[in-house]
Each structure stands twice: as C-alpha cells, then as structure tokens.
Nucleic acid binder design. Structure first.
Length: 837
DNA sequence: CTAGGGTTAG
C-alpha cells in the first residue's frame, strides 16, 4: 500500500525516518521508470517521451534513457531522440559508457551521422560495435574513404575487427576498385579465423566479381561450407555483372533444386539475367513465382519486372507491369521511357518524361539521359532543345552524364554548334565528353574539326579504344593516310586493336585511304569477324572495283554463319554495279527478298537502277523504277540520268531529268549532268537554255576540290587554281603531258566541257580541273615510285580520268584517285574501274 | 543485445 502512493503523498503523509541512501527517490524512481519502460515496451514513444519530460532528474535511471533511445533508433525518430538527448544533458548525466553508445546508435540509425560522429569522437569508445556502426554508415552514404579511415584508426588503437568490420571494409575497397587491398584483407581475415564466416566470404565473392575475377569468386563459393541466401545471390548477381547471364540462371536453378529459400534479391537478379538474354518464358515464370511469394508490392521487384518485359521486346507487358504497380518511382518511369525508345516510339517516350514530371516525380540523371537519348534517336532537334530548355527553366544542375547526353543528342540531331556549346560550358570533361564530340564531328562530315579536337584532347586526357574508333572515320573521309597510320601505331601500342570496333574502323580507314592491301591484311588477321567486319570489306572491294572479290567475301560470310543485314546488301549490290555484274546483282537482289525476308529500301533500288543503267539496260531501268513499290527519290532517277549520259540517250535523259528536277530542284549536280549530256550531243542551244534555267533559280555549281597528303600536310586545289606557290610548275607539267598525249594519238574529250567555246579555250578549261592539279603536284613532290593518292569531292571527269591513265604510264606512277563515288587505281595506263563508273 | 554481406535504370 505504501508503494501505491505517489512520492509526494509519501513525503507529506509520512514522518517515518527513511534512510537517505534508499530514500524517497528510490521508491519513486522505480515507479516513473517502470511506467516509461512500459510505454517503450509497447512502442509508445510519444507517451514515453512526454513522461520523460515531466519527470525529475532524480526519478530517472540510466536504463530508462537507454530504452527510449533504443526505441528512437529502431523507429528512426530523430526528433524524439534529440529531445531525449537534451533532457539527458540538462539533467547533467555524463555521456559515456552504455548511454553514450546508445546515443551514437540513435543518431546514426536516424541518419544524423554528424551528431553521431560528434558523440562517437567524444566518448572515445573501444567497442567494436560502435566502430563497425560508424564504418558501415559511412559506407552506406557512399563515403568509403571515411569508412576506411575509421578502419585504419581502429587498427592503430589496437582494436581487432570482427566479421562485421571485415565485410564492411572489403565492400569499401571493392567499391573503390582496390582489389589489391581486398586480397590483403582476405589473407588477414584467414589468419584471424574469419575465413569461414559467410558474411565475410560473401563480401569477398562480390569484391572479386566486381573486379572481373569470376574464377576466384567461384572458388570461394565452392569452398564456403555455410552458404546462405546472400551467398547464392552474390553468385547470381556476380555472373550477371560479368556478362554470364546463362551461368547466373544455372546457379539460380541449382538453388531451386537444393531448395534454398529464395528472397527478393534472388528474383530481382534472376529477372535481370532473363532480361539480358531475352528469355521471356523464364521471365514470365519468375513473375508468377514472385507474385506467389508476395513480392508484387515491392517496387524493386516491379521495376525489374517492367525492365525485363521491355528488354524481352514485350512493350505491352511492360506497360501492364507499370500500370499494375501501386507505387511508381523515377526508376519505373525511366524503364518505361526506355521501353518505348526500344520500340522506336520516341515521341511517346518523350511525352512520358513530361507526364512523369507533371505527376510530381522529379527526374534524375538516368531519366534525363533516357529522354535525351529518345530525342537523339528520333532525330528531332526541336524536341531535344525543348528538353534542354526544360532543364534551364528548372535550374537543374548539369552533371557530367547529363552534359554528355546533351552533346550526344545535339550531335545525333546534326547540330554540332550546339553540341560544342555544351562541351565548352562543361568545366570538367571526361573521356565520354571527348569521344562524343569527336565521334559527332566524324559522323557529321566535319573531319577537320574532329582531328582538331582529337589534338586538343591529347593535352588533357588519354584517348581510349572508343576514341580511336571515333577518329578513324574522320581520317578515312579525308583520306588522311599518314595521320591514320600514326593513329594505327598508337592503337597497336595500346592494344586497342583487340577491340572489334577499332579493328573494323581500321579496315574502313585503309579502304577509304585507297590502301586495299592493308585493309585486306587486317581483315584476314581478325579471328572473330562480326557483321560490320564483313560488310566493311565487301563495301571496300566494291568501291575499288573488285566485284568478284566482294562476292567471294559475301559467300564466305554466309558460310561463317553471319547473316547479312540491309547495309551488307547495299554494299554487295553496290559492288556488283561498280563492276557491271548484272546477273549477280539480280541474284543478290532477289535473295534479299526471298531468302532473307527483307524489304528492299531506296538504296537497294538505287543500286539496281545504277546497275541496269550502267550496263545499258536503260529502258529496263525505267520500267524497274515505275514498278517500284516505294516512291523513288532523286537518287534513283539520278542513277538513271547518269546511265543516260554514259549511253548517250538524250531523249530519255530529258524525261528522267524532269523527275529529278521536281524532286530536288536545288541540287545543281543534276543540272550540270544534263548540260553535259546536251554538250556531248553538241546540242548547244539546249545547254544555253539549261544554263538560263539554272541562272534563274540562282543556283551555284559547287566547286570541285581535290587534295593530296604530302609529308603529313594537305595540299588542297580548286578548279583553275593559280594561287598555289608551285602553280607554274604544275601547269607546265600538265601542258607537257597534254602534248605527249596528243603525240600518242589521244585527243582531249572536248565534248565533256560545259562551254561552247573554241577548242583552245576548252582545252585550258579542261586542264584546270582540281584533280589534275593535285596529281601533278603529287608527281612533283612525292619521291619517285611512291603511289599518288588524290581525293576529290565530286565525281572525276572523263578527261581527267583519261589523263590519269596516261600519267600512270608515262610517269611510271601508281595513282589512286578517290572521287565521291568510288576508287580508281591507275597503273600502266589502265584503271581498275575499266572505264566503267 | 543492437549492425552486415547480395538489389532495378544509362
């Protein structure tokens, strides 16, 4: 009955002499403490703290504070934890020992690492638990360095770690990619006797997988006696991470056979494996399994499921998975956006981005890069700019991946100016930034800018294999053999040639630089050729006029089990047309439809028209165009117009030209072509009319331009250029050549001149063509016997072609001339095109 | 006594 009274009532009602040591407080304290502890036991934190606030210092015991702090920690209630802390302080309780540890635990668990750290530093505890707590929390927020610092301090103080310490430190070193340290810890762990702890071994397995040491990881797993679900999950995710999704799924199946309990992480990893190998049926089975295991409310499960359906090319199921989700995150939206991109529905993907934003889900780096990728793929500069403006309006920070995605978008949409603007405004660039810009310039036919940036890059950053694959096409389009060779050397020194992208780009480089022998050599050295390798070589043979070799290569490719795609067919048809192989061309065209189930596209029709027209089947070509299932464009009619010129069919040319002019009224090349056809038929009146027509439209003929690389420098010539320092020597060489030609019975093909002037004037005009100037410059400046390689932006003219043949014989030089259409190898008075181009 | 090792997107 005494105990049931309140302490105050006791004091007032009693005059008993109570000993001081056990005192009134002692009885009262147990009462208040018990009440608070009772609240804590049932998880009523609010009432526990309220009562704590009302209680006096003397009424409270240490355990009571600890109970409340424990509850705060478990429920992550920082506010109540702080209140408790301040009561402890104002009550003058020293922060040390168990109470100090509890405070650290509370702060750290509530995510207030700063206050946790302050108390941790203050109490100077040697408890391993607290050290582990700090380490793992730093690791959790991604500050691996601080976590490692703690570990080092711990070692200095002579505190021996336990399994928690080592699993954490191994993870930190693994994240930082310091596998050497992991190995060191591995040995240390064995010495201390933690070598059989599954938590430690599991983190080691993950560390080795992260470093690509699949075998080491697997050995650890084999030797691990006490495997738990995490061990299995580590194996599955490790194999997936290293690109062995099939093995990952085999391990998953093994797990099912051994009846190891599967958890959420297991299913998520297995679903990723299914997504990677496109195994829809297994993915569906896992879907069902997960629903039965009650994971259908887990965001992680649903997001992975959505992505699995997307990657298995099942957009409908992906949409359904999204719609069934109770809770969506930015990850769900991003996966859905990517799913639409994968299906080619770019506009819908872009629309989803804005819908997500309007639903209050703020975009992150991944969603932003995805939507920019959608803009890039849809080739829509306006939509890409809109997204860019959206960032600016919302003051969103441009992180490096976002800036890189912006550059890529602008580059793919053809605006290198805007791409460069982003690039120049990116203070710290990485290799991706440089590669994106260099590749962008290459693909947008700005090879000089690509080379310039490549030079700048080397001052700041080390190029990698991708850089090489980006810069090589620029060298190719300039026919910059010397620079290309230097880059080839760099590739060999760094071992980049093992990368198939690089190897393919190198073959293409040598093809484009006219060095077919080198291209062939490299081609034969590649043990595992992919579709691109074969296609590049087929196109290369075609461009150089080796149709038969192109066909043999095509057949070898099929034997190697590689299926041709649309581009391969373009290349082989192109090769047939450049060598005049009509029957073979038809064969490939038909097999494309019947054997490979492909719909020929415009470029395939263009090749066939070209082939028919060149071989003189003009009316067949006309019929072929008229029966095409798709609308012919200017290049198709243009190919026929070319044929009309070769076979001097003025009547058909006029008919065809009207189609061309209607489709591409701004393209001067076609007017010039028709003018030449008239000129060759000596229809000067018609030439004059056409010139007037061109004049009215205000069209300008794009100037012919040729260049040649001598000692790593380019000499560039335009038609009738007299500004070159060696102009006099060049002209006299050409005049001498012309005289020699006349003496040997060659007459200049005057009918190819556009002007109706007297013969002398025509001859001068003929002599001024840029390719002649470049070839002459080559003869004058390259050591005897060296092959002369000239590149021209337009098609070579017939007169220049004749002269090149003559030059190759009289000057005893091999000349390789690349025009906008193909290669001409001149040797001993003959050309590989056999005058057929 | 408390904690951890394995978890989706580009």
């Amino acid at each position: 009955m005494f105990f049931r009274q309140s302490p105050i009532a006791c004091l007032l009602s009693s005059n008993l002499d109570v000993p001081r040591s056990t005192g009134v407080g002692a009885f009262a304290m147990s009462d208040e403490n018990a009440k608070i502890r009772k609240f804590c036991e049932v998880g009523d934190l609010r009432n526990a703290v309220e009562l704590l606030k009302k209680s006096k210092k003397a009424e409270l015991g240490l355990n009571t504070y600890c109970s409340i702090l424990q509850l705060c920690a478990e429920h992550s209630c920082l506010q109540e934890g702080k209140t408790t802390h301040s009561i402890i302080s104002s009550n003058g309780i020293p922060i040390e020992g168990v109470l100090g540890a509890k405070l650290v635990f509370m702060y750290v668990n509530c995510g207030d690492l700063r206050n946790g750290r302050r108390i941790f530093d203050h109490i100077q505890s040697d408890k391993v638990f607290l050290w582990n707590l700090m380490m793992s929390q730093y690791a959790k927020i991604g500050d691996c360095h601080e976590s490692i610092n703690h570990f080092r301090k711990m070692q200095k103080r002579g505190i021996t770690g336990n399994s928690y310490t080592f699993s954490c430190i191994i993870k930190c070193f693994a994240i930082l990619g310091r596998v050497g340290e992991c190995k060191r810890i591995h040995g240390y762990v064995y010495k201390l006797g933690f070598g059989s702890y599954n938590s430690v071994v599991n983190s080691l397995i993950a560390a080795y997988f992260k470093d690509g040491r699949v075998d080491s990881a697997h050995n650890l797993f084999d030797e691990l006696g006490d495997r738990d679900v995490v061990s299995w999950n580590s194996m599955i995710s490790g194999y997936v991470m290293n690109g062995f999704s099939h093995t990952a799924l085999e391990i998953f199946i093994q797990m099912l056979i051994l009846r190891v309990a599967v958890d959420l992480a297991t299913l998520v990893n297995a679903l990723v494996a299914c997504a990677n190998i496109g195994s829809l049926s297994l993915g569906r089975a896992l879907h069902g399994y997960g629903v039965k295991a009650c994971f259908s409310r887990e965001v992680m499960f649903n997001n992975t499921l959505l992505d699995m359906y997307s990657k298995c090319c099942n957009l409908n199921d992906a949409i359904q998975a999204f719609e069934k989700m109770g809770q969506t995150t930015v990850v769900s939206w991003t996966s859905l956006i990517s799913a639409y991109v994968r299906e080619g529905l770019f506009d819908e993907a872009i629309r989803l981005f804005y819908e997500m934003e309007s639903k209050g889900v703020s975009p992150d780096v991944y969603s932003i890069t995805s939507v920019l990728h959608a803009c890039a793929c849809s080739n829509s500069l306006d939509k890409g700019r809109d997204v860019h403006n959206y960032f600016r309006k919302n003051n969103m920070a441009l992180s490096l991946p976002v800036s890189n995605a912006l550059m890529d978008m602008y580059a793919k949409c053809g605006s290198m100016e805007e791409a460069y603007l982003v690039f120049s405004q990116t203070p710290v660039k990485d290799i991706v930034s440089w590669n994106t810009m260099i590749g962008g310039y290459s693909k947008n036919s700005l090879p000089n800018e690509a080379l310039k940036l490549f030079g700048e890059m080397q001052e700041e950053s080390r190029p990698d294999g991708i850089t090489m694959a980006c810069i090589l096409p620029a060298c190719g389009s300039l026919a910059a053999l010397k620079i290309g060779r230097a880059i080839h050397g760099c590739i060999l020194r760094n071992g980049y040639s093992l990368d198939l992208h690089v190897a393919n780009a190198l073959i293409d480089l040598y093809v484009k630089c006219g060095s077919l022998v080198h291209a062939q050599l490299l081609f034969h050295m590649i043990p595992e050729k992919d579709l691109i390798t074969w296609t590049v070589m087929i196109a290369g043979y075609g461009m150089h006029g080796f149709g038969a070799e192109a066909i043999v290569t095509f057949q070898k490719m099929k034997i190697a089990g590689i299926k041709p795609d649309e581009i391969t067919f373009t290349s082989i048809l192109y090769a047939c047309s450049h060598s005049g192989l009509l029957n073979e061309g038809w064969g490939f065209f038909n097999s494309m439809i019947s054997e490979c189930n492909m719909q020929p596209e415009l470029e395939h029709y263009a090749c066939m028209v070209d082939l028919l027209a060149r071989t003189g089947n003009l009316s067949k070509a006309y019929q072929f165009i008229e029966t095409m299932p798709i609308k012919p464009d200017a290049t198709i009619w243009g190919a026929l117009l070319c044929g009309c010129r070769i076979h001097h069919d003025v009547e058909l040319a006029e008919k065809v030209a009207e189609h061309v002019f209607e489709l591409e009224p701004q393209n001067t090349g076609y007017y010039v072509l028709l003018a030449n056809i008239y000129a060759e038929a000596k229809k000067w009146e018609e030439v004059k009319k056409l010139r007037e027509r061109i004049g009215k439209r205000g069209l300008k003929k794009s100037p012919g331009c040729s260049w040649i690389e001598v000692q790593g420098k380019f000499a560039i010539f335009v038609s009738a250029d007299t500004s070159h320092p060696q102009a006099e020597r060049i002209v006299s060489l050409l005049n001498n050549m012309r005289i020699k030609m006349k003496n040997e019975g060659y007459s200049p093909k005057m009918r190819y001149a556009l002007v109706n002037a007297d013969d002398t004037e025509k001859e001068t005009a003929l002599c001024g063509h840029s390719e002649k100037l470049a070839m002459a410059f080559g003869i004058l400046n390259l050591p005897p016997g060296r092959t002369i390689r000239v590149t021209k932006n337009l098609r070579v003219c017939n007169d220049c072609h004749e002269m090149a043949k003559f030059m190759s014989k009289t000057a005893r030089r091999e000349i390789i001339l690349r025009d906008s259409n193909r290669f001409h190898h001149f040797k001993d008075g003959f050309c590989t095109c056999r005058d057929f181009w």
